[in-house]
Design a protein around this nucleic acid. Structure first.
Lengths: 77, 77
DNA sequence: ATGTAGACTCATGTCGACA
DNA sequence: ATGTCGACATGAGTCTACA
């Protein structure tokens, strides 16, 4: 499982846990709304710049997001 | 301090700890040698695709690399 | 062994609109 | 509220070469 796909699933899960819509998250992270959609579906490989933008509104950290991404990949192999 | 700059410093530190040259790391991570140079100097914002490639040869994990990046930023603000 | 440069490809990320 | 599309610009990442 490619990192982008695993990351997308983690992103979606974290967003829902935070009770945010894609729209709300995009606003808070200062990125495009449809770009959140692309990321969640694993179609783009996020840069650390955007990763750091996303973490705060999700009330988590970039490292925690990647930690979960790694775990998901392990489970899925 | 921007995330790319902090990440660059962490990358360089981890590479030296692993006893690798930029050249060796690039070969093992299957990326360009001068791109490692760009990353270490904080001139580019690495994607998670490359981040996952770098972690293994450095004998660490992507999340650990970002954890250290976050710590460095905190210390520097 | 590293920094830098130019020229290049193609993916990332933006913006507006519509189902 | 989300997926998708098209057009766009910017930036990531490659490759070769030289100080």
């Amino acid at each position: 499982m490619e990192p982008e796909v695993a990351f997308g699933k983690v992103l979606r899960a974290l967003r829902k846990q935070a009770g945010l819509s894609q729209e709300r998250l995009a606003l808070d992270a200062d990125i495009q709304r449809n770009y959140v959609s692309l990321l969640e579906r694993g179609l783009n490989s996020v840069s650390i710049k955007v990763l750091f933008k996303l973490a705060a509104p999700l009330k988590t950290s970039p490292s925690e997001m990647l930690e979960q991404t790694e775990q998901l990949r392990k489970r899925h192999r």
